[in-house]
């Protein structure tokens, strides 16, 4: 996939952010994971969050999806101050997340995982029940859209390959991410075709007005779909750049902390 891909990128400038986080700090005991990060996502844009291992990316998106409460800082959702008490709250607001660990239950079937926490129901009162058929057919259809033909919707997630599992998580988030879609390294286990598929899916939901937060270690993937790029380093933002204002090399250097990377690259003959 080349840098100047065929994706038409979202114009961002004017629209108001769907979600805006200001000066977020997060401490775990005496570990300072985030030391004041500001970030926002607008409708119809893909905002990439980049940074080295341990930079705080996952911690940051978890404050956005209701898993962590920030130690300090404010979150505004559609202009109003918001404090998500749980991931369920964030979901109800239309924020869906693919977590780095995928949040899947290996012993449960694909369809049950897909709708975990948001089961479709049928019937009334005492006969209100989990609509298993609907869950199964929607899961199969959504997975097929992502380029994976499941053998059966009642297959346990534990029997899926790593990439298939990741695809289930992505398909699930896309299905439920009505306002914001957060993807934490969603392509780390994917093959070429599935990766292209995920990038195309990001492009598609973006064009529907969803704000996408995309975390990746792969600068080429980020450049392919990103409209804005924010680099995190040791719990702080190094800055945000718009598409076209920054090159892949510059991003790579920012992410890795420049100098050492240049040295490494020369010893490896520029293959990284």
């Amino acid at each position: 996939m080349s840098e100047d891909s065929t994706f038409h990128h979202g114009g961002t400038g004017s629209a108001n952010p769907i979600i805006e986080l200001r000066d977020i700090e997060k401490h775990f005991g005496n570990v300072i994971a985030l030391a004041g990060v500001s970030f926002d996502v607008r409708p119809g844009e893909c905002h990439c969050l980049l940074g080295d291992n341990g930079a705080g990316k996952s911690t940051f998106i978890k404050t956005m999806s209701g898993v962590h409460k920030p130690t300090r800082g404010t979150i505004a959702f559609e202009g109003r101050p918001m404090s998500f008490a749980s991931p369920r709250d964030a979901m109800e607001a239309g924020i869906a997340t693919v977590f780095q660990d995928l949040a899947m239950i290996p012993l449960m079937s694909v369809a049950r995982n897909f709708f975990m926490g948001r089961e479709p129901t049928r019937g009334w009162g005492l006969t209100r029940r989990f609509d298993v058929e609907k869950a199964n057919s929607v899961t199969m259809a959504e997975m097929r859209k992502m380029g994976i033909n499941l053998r059966a919707p009642d297959q346990a997630v534990g029997t899926l390959s790593g990439g298939e599992r990741q695809t289930v998580a992505i398909a699930r988030a896309v299905h439920f991410g009505a306002r914001v879609l957060i993807l934490d390294e969603p392509t780390s286990a994917l093959g070429v075709r599935q990766t292209a598929n995920v990038l195309a899916t990001i492009d598609k939901v973006r064009s529907q007005g969803v704000g996408v937060v995309f975390i990746s270690h792969n600068v080429r993937h980020a450049m392919a779909v990103g409209d804005r790029f924010t680099v995190l380093n040791r719990g702080k933002t190094l800055g945000t750049a718009r598409r076209g204002e920054i090159t892949a090399e510059e991003l790579q250097d920012l992410m890795a902390g420049g100098q050492e990377m240049a040295q490494l690259e020369s010893t490896l003959g520029g293959t990284v």
Binding site: V67, S86, R88, I105, P106, R112, R129
Partner: peptide, 24 residues
């Protein structure tokens, strides 16, 4: 056959994953 049942399996299967997926 109920959402609550799905939540029970999920809560026991992996507490964090279940909570992060919106299971109370």
């Amino acid at each position: 056959r109920t959402p609550a049942g799905n939540w029970i399996f999920a809560s026991g299967g992996d507490r964090n994953a279940a909570a992060n997926s919106g299971v109370p």
